[in-house]
């Protein structure tokens, strides 16, 4: 599904070069549930942003469904992104001025989906996440777990091929976190490719593969089964 080769990311501050990612090589196939772990500052979020086309590498190649993303302009990246990728954030990042319903609707608007079809899609998702009663509330009126449910709903409503999650349970109580992870597992079973960044070892166990980052290098890349031993 995607592959990156020799990806590098660094910041130059005067004569100093700060490396965030160095020589990253990675292949992800459809249907995988990948977990990226590593200490703070190891470059996990940057890697996720690059995979999600929110950030660009300073060097290296990125092929997404065999398309050379690293050579695309912003407009084409935005197109790919719009149709294939969903994002879930630690801080939910819902738009405060929009209701639950409107937040979920936003990506569909950007894809130019017709009103009737939009209504049906949102109704489905609200129903699936048990949020029908809350559709007219604003984010500030919801608990953290509920906000993240909306965040996930918004990320998957467009049926993306790839779901990226940056510490999706980082701001949640453990029980709320479990609900979200169960949801991810279910989405995975339904065939969605998921890449998550987390600090939480328990969350990593929902995945099928674990990548460990340290100081911008991949330190370890293995199936999750080995961890379970």
């Amino acid at each position: 599904m995607l592959s990156i080769k020799n990806i590098e990311r660094f910041y130059k501050t005067g004569p100093l070069t700060t490396w965030v990612l160095r020589d990253i090589n990675l292949k992800v196939s459809e249907g995988e549930f990948v977990t990226i772990m590593g200490p703070s500052g190891s470059g996990k979020s940057t890697l996720l942003n690059i995979l999600g086309m929110l950030d660009q590498p300073d060097a290296g190649e990125y092929l997404f469904f065999d398309e050379p993303v690293h050579r695309f302009n912003e407009k084409r990246r935005s197109e790919l992104h719009k149709h294939y990728i969903g994002f879930v954030f630690q801080a939910y990042h819902l738009i405060d001025e929009l209701t639950v319903y409107e937040n979920i609707e936003t990506p569909l608007l950007y894809r130019g989906i017709k009103s009737a079809e939009r209504k049906a899609m949102i109704a489905d998702v609200l129903d699936r996440f048990n949020m029908v009663a809350k559709k007219d509330l604003f984010p500030a009126q919801l608990s953290g777990g509920q906000q993240q449910l909306v965040g996930v709903a918004r990320a998957i409503i467009g049926k993306p091929k790839l779901l990226l999650a940056d510490e999706p349970t980082g701001n949640l109580h453990s029980s709320q976190g479990e609900t979200i992870m169960e949801l991810f597992a279910q989405l995975h079973r339904e065939g969605m490719t998921i890449i998550q960044v987390t600090h939480n070892e328990k969350n990593a166990q929902y995945g099928t593969r674990l990548i460990q980052l340290e100081d911008g290098f991949v330190r370890d890349d293995a199936g999750v089964a080995r961890l379970n031993v």
């Binding site: 929110l54 912003e74 935005s78 992104h81 719009k82 954030f89 990042h93 819902l94 990506p107 950007y110």
Partner: peptide, 12 residues
């Protein structure tokens, strides 16, 4: 808000 909209695929 703008960042979120961009991750949701808004065009410039």
């Amino acid at each position: 808000e703008i960042g979120v909209r961009k991750t949701l695929g808004v065009g410039r």
